[in-house]
Design a binder for these strands. Sequence first.
DNA 1: CTGTTAGCGCGTTCAG
DNA 2: CTGAACGCGCTAACAG
Lengths: 345, 345
Amino acid sequence: MKHKITLKKIAKEFGVSISTVSKALKNSHEISSEVKERIQAFAKYYHYKPNSLALNLRNQKTKTIGVIIPEIVHHFFTKVITGIEKLANEKGYNVMICLSNESYEKEVLNLEMLANGVVDGIIVSVAKETEEKDDYRHFNELINNGIPLVMFDRVVDQINCNKVIADDKGGAFLATEQLIKNGCSHIALLTTPDYVTVGNERKEGYLKALYENNIPANQDLVVKVNDKISIEEQLSVLFEGGIIPDGIFAVNEIYAATVMKVARNFGYNVPEDIEVIGFTDGLISEFTTPSLTTVAQHGRTMGQKALELLLDEIDSQDTHYQYKTSLIQTDLKIRNSTKKVEFHN
Amino acid sequence: MKHKITLKKIAKEFGVSISTVSKALKNSHEISSEVKERIQAFAKYYHYKPNSLALNLRNQKTKTIGVIIPEIVHHFFTKVITGIEKLANEKGYNVMICLSNESYEKEVLNLEMLANGVVDGIIVSVAKETEEKDDYRHFNELINNGIPLVMFDRVVDQINCNKVIADDKGGAFLATEQLIKNGCSHIALLTTPDYVTVGNERKEGYLKALYENNIPANQDLVVKVNDKISIEEQLSVLFEGGIIPDGIFAVNEIYAATVMKVARNFGYNVPEDIEVIGFTDGLISEFTTPSLTTVAQHGRTMGQKALELLLDEIDSQDTHYQYKTSLIQTDLKIRNSTKKVEFHN
DNA sequence: CTGTTAGCGCGTTCAG
DNA sequence: CTGAACGCGCTAACAG
């Protein structure tokens, strides 16, 4: 285990003091050019790099920002990370990614760990379990410690910080309205349990579209999917009797892709018998048959915006910084799970 | 910006020395229980946490391991990360994820940054551009600096370190043989450019299966896909004349899913006319129509194994540590893009 | 039982 | 032009 080269070692090598070496390497005018040249050449040869830890400790900042996401296997989150990463690199920041795995406890642990001097600021999307417990003290503590925090996607109203959200309600509205325009009148909603905030937002957009088009909402057409048990079984109820939907809006890609499978198993064709729209940035949508019409979330843009806000706060000296909430537009990506129709408005 | 509580502040508060506080908090028997109690209560109340940076600097280790992956939007890599993360957390390690975006330069930068005292060890899958340039000096330098390194999936033969690879050749062999058993005789291969090592391994498995079954290899049935231009167009050549394949083995999920689309556009049915097998851990495979038969890579297992090896090396005091290469078994996940047939061997 | 000292690696006064 | 001293926050060896 060879040891890394330090100022100290270089100093010893040249028989000068540590601070002389430090200055020489920073090209200080205080040092004779002859000494500077020799030291610099030596340092270059041995690939001298100041130790980050020491620098961080001294400067009380790390040029690193932490990101906590609930799940990394979700395509949306990877898009967000891509956005964060890109901007971070341009700005000379490193990114440390942590996973909460939707667990409250792990979220708290991650937060504690990051808060401990490891990062200059934190970007987080709240774990489902945390939303369920409705306990956000760990975030408040973070803020009290003066660590800049940005929430994205799954945000918490009660917490006072910068936020980035997709226009969930607007996107859901767009999607539902599209189905209505295409002639659907029995539109089902596949959503998450109530405690998931984005699910609720999307539900509201769905309801708003129904309302504005004078279509009565029907509880029987709303399925709150529990991820812990078989999705297919839960979706089957839609086709087992009662009113069969002619349009389906799903709050995510998996539900949308799955419901197409289930519908087909029950003998229904998409989009002829039933039209389907999902909500996602995911990859799956392009490869299903038919390919899925979706509401695009622009994850990368969200990530960039989140980092922008974070750096903004980090750089700000303001005692009373004004927190913002940035709403990222969503829009419809028409594919083949909806009918192509011409309108005459 | 409130400031974090430190030993120094507690010491001042109680009018004792810093080391007394330090000991008190560690419940040292050297300190009177009365003082200990008061200090501990105070520390608890103010949520005292030792500053990680200071600890790291002092201990010359960070309990953090770095992971460099080429792309985070690939499902395989997220699975690997999940595996790494899980074990890391059990062992009390944090994980820092960096993206090279398949770029040589960014890989070098990431490596430099991580090597600088930030992590205790590094797990990496080599960027395509690096494989193309065939320049691995940055890895050697890392090793010379005594920083434990594990390579996974896309590994480099010339570098002497721990490695974890999927049994690419074996998996490809399995897949190809399955197609042969199902009656295919004109089996196409969709692969990557030559410099991508895993692509080559898989190609070898494919060729071996052909050879062992006395099927002549046919260059016209091998497509080396260039990711930078339209995949669909490149795959179309298979169906535009000459020998139309009756079986296709693709070295990844995207190629496999795309070729099914293209085949359908040309009027061929999967699996009736053409059977397809992909190579991946991906999500898409389950949602295509028909769902894709694939070679499963067990990304999570690979991640776990990689971390295991890394910790092994970190903990090892051996001057002459023996590097290992761990081969992770692959196996066939039969879905609907291949025919269900019964054999009588 | 408590305090002093030193050191992890670095940059920055301030003296010389 | 050069070096000694200090501080970032913490622990451990050593004194008292």
